[in-house]
Nucleic acid binder design. Structure first.
Length: 238
DNA sequence: AATAGAGCCAACCGCCACTAA
DNA sequence: GTTAGTGGCGGTTGGCTCTAT
């Protein structure tokens, strides 16, 4: 990466000497007032650049090694819950920066996650002779499917099976949607019912009877997936 | 050995929120 | 209430390294 000086400011990779100066000045002045700190340091760097270098590389207690399997599992799980809230996820992984996690996600986990997402698609062309399958877990939600999947215990929306998909949609998108508070009830009830098999921590994958709509035909089958995959698209839309 | 393509990651950019004047 | 300054965040860029051909 070539240095690209702009005006009086240096850009591009940091030199060892610059790191030493920045470490010294942050030690003396603290992690604040980055613009003033940058000027006082004599570094030809912007305050933003100094802050970024400190936060992502020089800060004490940062972990520079590889992401562990435990950390990877946490990232995957939290990304399912929160999406690309990297700084929020980073707070749960001491020593890791949001930038590290973001880069790791893009280069290692995105494909893995997408592969898991693909499992959500009801690809049963051979069974139905349909050319296209309707994804129940993607952004364009099929509320009929969701309702059917989730209504066994009242559903996370608080609907009964007699209510319409439109009502389901309305609840999910409304400001006073009850799903957020009901989801924990739903999870706990599912965990202890015969209807849904659960894994060890009750927050991972579930197998539940699922009513699948494929084009004009439909069928019923068992489905194993994370509850968050059903919940997140709704959360993002609300 | 040379080259192309993919993957990785540090750094930058632009936007937004917050705060003080 | 408005404006300017600042910090924080997520998305993007681009150079370096590795791997396959």
């Amino acid at each position: 990466m070539a240095n690209r000086d702009v005006g009086n400011l240096r850009r591009g990779p940091w030199l060892e000497e610059e790191d030493e100066i920045l470490t010294t000045i942050v030690g003396a002045l603290g992690e604040k007032h980055w613009d003033a700190l940058a000027k006082q340091s004599g570094l030809r760097r912007s305050g933003k650049s100094c802050r970024l270098r400190w936060m992502n590389y020089l800060r004490p207690n940062l972990k520079h090694g590889e992401i562990t399997q435990e950390e990877e599992a946490i990232i995957l799980d939290l990304h399912k819950q929160w999406g690309s809230k990297w700084s929020k996820i980073a707070k749960k992984l001491p020593g890791r920066t949001d930038n590290q996690i973001k880069n790791y996600w893009r280069s290692h986990l995105k494909k893995k996650s997408e592969a898991q997402e693909a499992e959500c698609f009801e690809v049963t062309k051979s069974n139905t002779n349909q050319d296209s399958a309707i994804p129940l877990c993607e952004g364009s939600l099929d509320y009929t499917g969701i309702e059917s999947c989730m209504s066994g215990n009242g559903g996370i929306f608080g609907i009964s099976s007699s209510e319409t998909p439109e009502m389901c949609s309305m609840y999910a998108l409304g400001n006073d949607s009850p799903y957020e508070s009901r989801i924990s009830e739903w999870i706990s009830s599912c965990c202890w019912s015969n209807e849904v098999k659960h894994d060890e921590d009750c927050m991972g994958t579930y197998t539940y009877p699922c009513f699948c709509q494929l084009g004009s035909s439909s069928h019923e089958e068992s489905k194993t997936h994370s509850v968050w995959d059903l919940w997140n698209p709704i959360w993002e839309m609300s």
